Structures are given as structure tokens and as C-alpha cells.
Simulated scan of single mutants.
Amino acid sequence: MLRSHMLLAALLVASSAAHAADPAPEIKRAVATPQAAGVVHTLRTIPEACARLEGKFTGNAGKPYEFAAMRTSERCAPRAKLVDAANAKASVANGWLLNDVIRVPSAACPARQAVVRIWRKDTKVAPPTLDAQGRSRIYLKDSMDAARAGDLKPIPVFAAAMTMEGLACK
């Protein structure tokens, strides 16, 4: 038992060293509870993008973990986009911020864990100017006119990538 804990600690140190170049994430979280194979679990919800990140260990050595983004509600109006981090080339060098790192160990193989990195592209959008009553208001006609003119404000973008870390169990 002690030997397996030492192995797990060594693997965690090795996996953190592998991504030592990553900056500290904006959200600090502990390692998730180990998950059994075949059990779908929610990793994180991103309300701005109307998305819920889900995953499950498959028990298949070829593809040990399935990861997907699901829409939270049909009626939800997204205020941000969620994209694949590999296609977006999300990195600090490209202006992205590491928002969150989620580590989920396998219940069947504690030395193996799925690691989801969520990046956020910061947008510098100024709030609307105050009107005569001191209120910040957005009028539909003004927004529609701006959209027709092609003067759309940038929206936040989130990118998610999943990797497997640690040793595969036999």
C-alpha cells in the first residue's frame, strides 16, 4: 500500500514537471475524486459559453478517456465561445490565460489521470457609457446598427484540451 502511494506521488511530481512551463492557473483546485470506468462525470461548467465539460474513463487502452463539451440548455444564449485548444493554439505566447487545470484520477488505476486544461482569451471590452440618468444601457437598435456596420465587440473565448498523464496500468 505504501509503495503504491509513493509511486502515485512520484508520478504526480513527474506530471507536474512535464507541464512546468505552464503558468499558474487562475482557478486553484484540488485533484478530483477518482472516477470509475464508464461513469460520466462533469468536469466544469462554463456558463458564459453555455457549456458543460464532461468526461469518462473508458477502460479501453487505445482511448482511455472520452472528453466532450455539452450544451447546458437549449435556451441558453452564449456570451462566449468554447473552442478546441489545439486548433486555437492556446498558449501564453498567443495571448491566452491558463484559467483552470482539472485533474481526474482513474479509480481502477490511480497512477493514471486525465488532465483538462482550460484557457481563456482575455477581451478588453469597455462597459457602455453612462446615459443622462447615470445608467449603463444597451439599446437593441444601436446594437443592430453596429452589427450591420460590422462593428461587433470581441467576445471572450475559452479553449479546452485534455491529456492523459501518468503510467498506464496493466
Rank of each mutant, 00 (worst) to 15 (best):
L98N: 04
L152H: 01
R103Y: 04
G38Y: 03
T163L: 09
R44V: 12
A37K: 07
S4D: 14
A147R: 00
K63V: 12
A30L: 12
R44G: 03
A85I: 02
A114S: 12
H41V: 13
P25Y: 02
P47K: 03
A107N: 06
H19M: 13
D22A: 10
S15F: 03
P64C: 07
P47I: 06
V83F: 01
L140G: 10
N87R: 08
G95C: 10
R137P: 08
L130D: 13
H19Y: 12
A93F: 03
A132P: 05
L130W: 02
A107P: 02
P154Y: 00
P110D: 07
H19T: 14
V40A: 11
C76T: 04
E66W: 01
D22F: 06
I102L: 11
T123R: 11
A49N: 02
K56A: 11
E26N: 12
G166Q: 03
G150T: 01
V125M: 09
A30C: 09
R120H: 08
D22Q: 09
V83R: 01
L152F: 02
C109P: 02
K153E: 15
D151S: 11
M164A: 06
L43T: 05
N87Q: 14
S4E: 14
A160V: 04
Q35S: 15
T45K: 03
T123K: 13
C50L: 05
N87S: 14
R29S: 15
P110L: 02
A111K: 01
F57M: 04
P105M: 03
G62P: 02
A159T: 00
K81G: 06
L7V: 12
R112A: 10
H19V: 14
I155L: 09
G166M: 03
S143L: 14
R79P: 04
G134L: 04
P34A: 08
S16R: 11
V40E: 14
K124T: 15
S106P: 01
